[in-house]
């Protein structure tokens, strides 16, 4: 299990490398990231990775361009942690610090 810190929501959760970050958030009932389609299509669960290694599945280029991906933006339903990670939530639905 890896520890994922949501920097701007003052929360942490555990996530295995078999779970997407969003699945990890959902399974621990933490409302740090908004849940959308869970399939990389709608863009609702977009985050920015601050640090940590991860594996990524394909996500809709309309919501995360190649340039944004290189800057750490991704959809949390499509990335799987390979180490502890620090992320930032980008939607406005959760509590800010």
């Amino acid at each position: 299990m890896h520890t994922i810190t949501v920097r701007n929501r003052a929360s942490q959760f555990q996530c295995s490398d078999q779970q997407s970050l969003l699945h990890g958030v959902e399974s621990q009932r933490i409302k740090a990231v908004r849940v959308g389609c869970r399939g990389g299509g709608c863009g609702v669960c977009k985050i920015r990775v601050v640090s940590g290694e991860f594996h990524s599945k394909k996500m809709s280029i309309k919501h995360v361009t190649a340039q944004q991906q290189s800057q750490g933006y991704c959809l949390s339903c499509r990335i799987y942690p390979l180490s502890d990670m620090t992320i930032e939530a980008l939607d406005e639905s959760g509590p800010e610090i």
Binding site: G36, C37, R38, G39, G40, G41, C42, S60, C77
Partner: peptide, 8 residues
């Protein structure tokens, strides 16, 4: 329900 690409 959603397909694996997020289409409903």
């Amino acid at each position: 329900f959603f397909d694996p690409s997020g289409n409903r």
